[in-house]
Amino acid sequence: MNKLDQPVAALHGVVKRYGDVTAVDGLDLEVHRGELLALLGPNGAGKSSCVSLLLGLLRPDAGRAELFGRNPQHVDVRRRIGVMLQSAELPATLRVRELLRLTASYYPQPRDLAESARLAGVTDVLARPYAKLSGGQKRRVQFALALCGRPGVLFLDEPTVGMDIDARERLWWAMRTLVGEGCAVVLTTHYLEEAEVLATRVVVLGRGRVLSEGSVDTLRAHVASTRIRCISTLPAAMIAGWPGVEKVECGGEHLIIISSAEVEGLVRRLLDSDPALRDLEVRRAGLAEAFTQLTREAEAA
């Protein structure tokens, strides 16, 4: 296999159980260079277990986990990854600069300190002790530690929790920069808009299995509905009879029409039937709706 095509991280038929609970249930997953893979799923879906398995922190009960085609527990392959975990209390009395220096020393060819600090947006707090930082600043420092070794693949477990909007957008920018350099990113997040904005591929997990996999658009297409909202005097019961209309609801003076068909014709017919129609709003189902529907289907199954 060509080295460029080789996945940088992979799970092959991995099973992980905690007592009676099967957290990961025969999962296959591949991460390729230069892609940003978002792992989504409700709590307990197995996202963090997947990350821990890929990092070699957990051993699979069956199947195998690989980083760059090798066992993740080998220190040589870990020198090619960067990690930001959900919670890690770093040494409180060390300064940010010292934390960066220490972490960079683990890697064969790290970025220089100023560049890591700039990418993560921590240049202004380099001289501060870690304990004196705000929650958002701490997360940014952890991000700086994850990227300082010039990793080939970066694992980010809920990286933007506790960040304000500015900090979050800055982190998104940094992630894009890294992906542009050829780095692969594995991201778990609760913020769907984050996956929507960043991910080149989305994997939705539920009960330790892959529910869906593909680009954001593919996933959105899974829920092919559009929501039309307007103020109109047309009777809801009449619109409900039109072709392509799935459901009509009245919310205050607004009508909410859910359609699964081509929406342009429906809008034209609405405007023709009620010239006084106003406040028109047409919105395609986003990742959030798709995600909700996918996980609900999985629950029902």
């Binding site: 080295k3 064969p108 080939g152």
Partner: peptide, 27 residues
């Protein structure tokens, strides 16, 4: 670095042990 593993030189490896000890003491 993204496609090939870069070997860790002996000097850098020793440096990593040293940094760890230094950080732990400072801390």
């Amino acid at each position: 670095g993204f496609t090939e593993a870069i070997p860790m030189s002996r000097r850098r490896l020793f440096g990593a042990y040293l940094e760890e000890a230094r950080s732990e003491c400072l801390r």
